[in-house]
Structure formats: structure tokens, C-alpha cells
């Protein structure tokens, strides 16, 4: 149970960081140049929501103050993963949250 929650929390943190990243002009052009520009304005609020979702999921894994620590750690590391994927594998960078969400139920079976 904990493992799948952790997987979901990581996916949500990553997706949130990805959304915030896409909200910037530089990275929108890099990753989503084809998509309509009006969508870009939604990225930042969506990102914040996903990060808050990640915090909620963290609170299911750990007690209150620990959850805050874990959440910040996850944000940092997910941001780093995103940063490393952007120059080398931009499509994987975009698809990773989906992979995470699909993986989560696998841990439930374990």
C-alpha cells in the first residue's frame, strides 16, 4: 500500500514540476511548440494543484510534519529528474507521469 502511494506521490510531484516547467516560455517552446499557446496559461495553476495533490498523498504515507519533509524532498528530486531528461529524452520527460500512474497499481499486488 505504502509503495503504491509513494509511486503516486512521486508521479504527482513530477507532473507538477513538469507543468510548472511547461509554464515557462523557454521550455514551452522546447517541448510543446505544436500545442496552442493559450494552453500555456493553465500550466502554472495546474502545476500548483498537482504539487498540492502530492502533498496530500504524502500525508497518507507519513504523519504530518514528516510528510512535509518528504514532500519537499520529492519535489527537489523530481525537479532534478526532469532537468536531466529534458536535454536527453524530452518525450520520456513528458510521458513519465503516465508511466508512474500505470506502475502504482502494480505495487498494490505486491
Amino acid at each position: 500500500m505504502n509503495a503504491s502511494l509513494l509511486c503516486l506521490a512521486l508521479s504527482s510531484s513530477y507532473a507538477g514540476m513538469l507543468a510548472l516547467c511547461l509554464g515557462t516560455e523557454r521550455h514551452w517552446k522546447q517541448l510543446a511548440a505544436a500545442a496552442p499557446l493559450s494552453l500555456r496559461a493553465w500550466c502554472r495553476p495546474l502545476g500548483v494543484l498537482l504539487l498540492l495533490l502530492a502533498l496530500l498523498l504524502s500525508l497518507q504515507i507519513w504523519p504530518a510534519s514528516m510528510a512535509l519533509v518528504g514532500w519537499l524532498g520529492m519535489l527537489s528530486l523530481c525537479g532534478l529528474v526532469l532537468l536531466l531528461l529534458l536535454p536527453y529524452a524530452p518525450r520520456l520527460a513528458l510521458g513519465l507521469p503516465l508511466l508512474g500512474v500505470l506502475l502504482a497499481p502494480v505495487f498494490m499486488l505486491g
Binding site: 505504502n2 519533509v69 518528504g70 520529492m74 527537489s76 532534478l80
Partner: peptide
């Protein structure tokens, strides 16, 4: 020393970075 193995791994990876 808190939070079990998930927390420990977060600290470990952050420390490596």
C-alpha cells in the same frame, strides 16, 4: 532516523546529489 525506508532513501539520494 524518522519516516521509515522511503524517507531514508530520499535523504540518501539528496545526499548523493
Amino acid at each position: 532516523q524518522f519516516g521509515g525506508y522511503p524517507m531514508r532513501w530520499l535523504y540518501f539520494i539528496c545526499g548523493l546529489v
